[in-house]
Amino acid sequence: MSTLVLLTLTGLGLGALYFLIASGLALIFGLMDVLNFAHGAFLTVSAYAAWRTAETVGGTGGLALAALFGTATGALLAIVVELVLIRRLYGRPREQILVTVGLSLAVPALVQAVWGADSRPFPVPDALSGTVGVLGAQVPVSRFVLIAAALAVLAAVNLFLSRTRYGLIVRAGVEDRAMVTALGIDVTRAFTLVFAIGGALAGLAGVLGGLYFGSLSPHQGTSLLVFAFVVVVIGGMGSIPGVALSALAVGLVQQYANYYVDGYGDFAVVVLLAAVVLARPAPRLAGGVA
């Protein structure tokens, strides 16, 4: 029983991390049809920025500052990439993929050149390094931090989408971008905003990933991105609740399989992906966003 509880909460923590990355990916793809392979690079750079901050300041305050700084770094990076690179390439998916894949390779290499290839320990303040007893299991506090953060983000994103004018523009744009402009709305502003939100969430994921794994490395973002893409494919492009459920499922399946089927977690995720994709009715050729 206590093993199951620990596995479940660890899986939920991992799912929370996936959700933070995947929700940005899904919004960006849903609105702009951009597959942002650079998303992992946003995460990695933010994680290192947060790490430097946490090391310098120290303690719980240092971590809070690191979270803030990491999130801002992700947002800023995403805005620059959107304005400088992606903006010129709307409607040219091949070039977009080349550019974002290029970034996803170049940025980790750059990080590696500056801070080395080895993984670094992420300073976890004492307040968060302990465990909490839940039904007999000793669960690390950081798991709860991740779950709480993901829930808060889910609520905030939902509020943004359902209550704000930009949220309305994003939902409409996911359905029919051209028609949004035909109502007199400059949809490119929504593009930048959605990129910024996605980048901020990736940045937050970088910080929380450091907390979750207790370490960071130049390729952490890239490997997490793979699972985030799986989450998006399962959950549906452009659907935030779908992505949240899917992130939960992927995190749990991965943890359970890792333990009960002896290290087959990643394999189980692939099986889950295949099962979902095969069970889904073939998409209409007409296109449109689900």
Binding site: L168, R171, A172, V174, E175, D176, M179, A182
Partner: peptide, 11 residues
């Protein structure tokens, strides 16, 4: 008012 109406069905 476009030919296909351009109404946002999910809104």
């Amino acid at each position: 008012v476009p030919e296909d109406r351009g109404v946002f069905g999910s809104l």
